[in-house]
Amino acid sequence: MGILEVKGINKRFGGLQALGDVNLSVQENTVHAIIGPNGAGKSTLLNVLVGKLIPDSGSVMFDGKSVLGLKPFEITQMGISRVFQTPEIFINLTVMENVLIPCFAKRDGAYRLHALESFASEKDMIEQAEKMLEEVNMLDKRHMIASSMSRGDKRRLEMAMCLVQEPRLLLLDEPTAGMARADTENTIQLLKDIRTQRGITMAIIEHDMNVVFSLADRITVLAQGMPLVEDTPDKIKNHPKVREAYLGEAQV
């Protein structure tokens, strides 16, 4: 039984079958990649997992509990964090504030109206945030406004914001899309470190096969909303159906 169990998900947009009977089982402490050509339904699947879309049928169980019908913030509180294709951070706030907010969310739950408290009495939160920033080598940038950072730094900050909450499952939506090669290598290294140091389970949607094959333990291939095959990276590489549907055109 995986930490995330997706069974028989169907989602239709008008006449378009975006997802057809998709099953997915993500085992704890593994990196599970979801690949597929454009329009295969990867992003739709991800949006179902985080509560942004409600599927027409099927079930999504996280840690034995159904997440269907829950709002994104409730699902996040259960321990699923999401990294976006374009980093979603608080661009008007400082790096430190960006990391403090998830610290509060983790400790206080979905809301707490601490309107008259001051940060002076929140030393443990500040310590926690500083420790996280140190781990991603951003402590020296803690007073910078987030919008003034490079894209790679924004990605790292977003990752830090997710990690500080110690999620049980990290969903990554094309974390290296549009990145330069050096940044991509850094991100792969960062994800590998996260995995070895923290043992966080990850589900990753990615186009870059280099990223996928250097990270994933298992790979699910989607094509036109249908799961084509699910297997280990080595088997996927040589799978004739996959080559035909996807890898062939990517020239790997």
Partner: peptide
Amino acid sequence: RIFRSPFGLMLRAIKSNQTRMHYTGLNT
């Protein structure tokens, strides 16, 4: 006091990015 409190920070975060608020587990 409100401006400088964690609550004030949450409000500024709402102004900045509500999507991230939701995916940080916060009910705006």
